[in-house]
Design a protein around this nucleic acid. Structure first.
Lengths: 336, 336
DNA sequence: TTGTACGCGTTATCAT
DNA sequence: ATGATAACGCGTACAA
């Protein structure tokens, strides 16, 4: 592998001149430019980005930590982030933790070691130690979707309004005449889980409905969690007539159980879920869902990071994007 | 940001000793170890991975180029690759090209600049220039799912047998009595598209069925492509009675058109597609699909790369993984 | 066991 | 416009 000195030697110029030709900016005489380019061609030279990074103190990489890249919401966020990054000449280093705290810690550790210029965090657990190191190391950071429980609030957050979106969805169920509601919630440490549950409760309280404690089940993340949670609901002596699911993954697990037990949606059970999917319109029946602008969320997160990278301090205010409630056919009016 | 020299000074030792304490391997006296660790703690020191990479000549990063991370197949491949990478102490740098040749070229360029130690390629277009540079730069590389048209065959490929899987699926349609078949194919430059089309034709030829030229439509990638392709099929004077789709994304587009036009599956039209999805079992009707072991494919790709990185040369033989044909309810026997 | 000093490949500064 | 050279921060021979 040829390096810049080999090129300089072959072209009979200094390394500085080679760099100038390659990186533009400062002018170089046509003759030398010519010779340098020829040497580059002959030696098949490409500059070493690691060396450049060390020299410049930046890697032109954005770090994105996610818990599960296979989640459609996450994937869209990643795309939004990446598209925005590209515009700024950056690439995205995606790492998924698979909900494993150890893995998360390791990733954050590596991020803190200057392997990326800025970081977007879309992950589940505590993170506190790793995040505070990012802060101490002055690495611009942004939370996506949710702020981990104990995390510094000096870090901005790009999200939707989980609470009111949940409330709206549950209100819809109430308007349909449902009085006995259930929820498949997420881990209580997850802020979005807490918020969606709060929205659920608020709507019920507003309608003076009592939520039976046994009707709120916490599912582990992953389709398995949804499966199990709804099974518990279906096993109740008195089943709720409508269920609100924390997210699309849990909803998919719920669908599996519902299918297995021949429960008919929406006749026997109404279902609403957070997070829409390409295929929800085609499910039997089409699933009513709260859609988040995932791509936009990712793009906004990137925008925030680049503002920080470009020195514009700006108040680290949270960005809240609107959700869209997509009514389809998974909910029935009571009595129908 | 403290560096190794600051730590050395604070601990009253040499930088070499600090490195030895931190990286293990060579023994250091207990007393000095103690002092170093204390200094690290106090200064909040973390080593700079960029500098380490430059010094060691490796980044501990695996590069993965994909055309669309939001494709479920792709996401699973990424997970398999990443899980395997983690085991070897590596992280994965995922870049998506969004089917844009320019973006692909740029990513490969950056990979060739030693930003990663090895590369897995799961992307669409030519790639030829960028790939040959990887080869010239001796960066271990592996193709996933498909080998680009003009690419060097010294690079191993991890894939499934598209041709026979397609043949099997189409044979299933034929066994159901269908004699007029259509296909929503992918871009002809895509090897997998060519292979799946070939499998389609082989099965038809074997049953002495003629495939009407107008029954093979090439869809642009993305749901839009599937939508348009099937519309063309549905607009035919004589519609085929069964359709084979190149992949799940195109199939989703097809579902949209089918729904809009009130075409009933499987009564009016039978549908089979390559690539399964979490939700296909719950679609109305459940979609019959060819499942690829995406996670395994990713893991195998990583394994191949690590073998190369660890010097084991090994014949660069292709790895072919088995598919699974999942029969559900989107295909009807002719006459039913 | 420990320290010194050099190399990694680039960029940037400072003369010229 | 051009060249010499000092960083950048770490790992690691080599010497002690």
């Amino acid at each position: 592998m040829a390096n810049i000195r080999d090129v300089a030697k072959a072209a009979g110029v200094s390394t500085a001149t080679v760099a100038r030709v390659l990186n533009g900016g400062t002018p170089v005489s046509a003759a030398r430019t010519e010779r340098v380019l020829r040497a580059v061609e002959e030696l098949d030279y490409v500059s070493n980005r690691i060396a450049a990074s060390l020299s410049q103190g930046r890697t032109k990489l954005l770090g994105l930590l996610v818990s599960d890249i296979a989640n459609p919401f996450t994937a869209q966020v990643a795309r939004g982030l990446e598209d925005e990054a590209i515009k700024h000449g950056y690439q995205v280093l995606i790492a998924s933790s698979d909900f494993d705290a150890d893995r998360e810690a390791k990733v954050l550790d590596s991020f803190a070691r200057r392997t990326v210029d800025a970081v977007a965090l879309l992950s589940s657990s505590g993170l506190s130690e790793g995040v505070s190191r990012l802060v101490r190391n002055q690495i611009p950071t942004v939370f996506v979707d949710r702020r981990p429980p104990v995390a510094a609030s000096t870090i901005p957050l790009v999200r939707t309004d989980s609470l009111s979106a949940a409330r709206e969805a549950v209100q819809y169920l109430i308007d349909l005449g449902h009085t006995d509601l259930g929820m498949i919630s997420g881990p209580s440490e997850m802020p979005t889980a807490a918020q969606r549950l709060a929205g659920f409760r608020e709507a019920c309280r507003g309608a003076e409905l009592v939520v039976r404690p046994e009707c709120v089940r916490t599912g582990f993340l992953g389709t398995e969690g949804g499966y199990q949670a709804i099974c518990e609901l279906l096993d109740l002596e008195v089943r709720p007539t409508a269920v609100f699911s924390f997210n699309n993954v849990l909803a998919i697990g719920a669908l599996r159980a519902v299918r297995e037990r021949n429960v008919r949606i929406p006749h026997d059970l109404s279902l609403v879920t957070f997070d829409d999917t390409d295929l929800f319109p085609f499910v039997d029946p089409p699933i009513t869902a709260i859609a988040q602008p995932a791509y936009e969320i990712g793009a906004q997160a990137a925008t925030l990071l680049f503002e920080r990278l470009n020195g514009r301090q700006g108040a680290p205010a949270d960005v809240v994007l609107p959700t869209e409630f997509r009514i389809r056919e998974s909910c029935a009016r009571v009595g129908d």
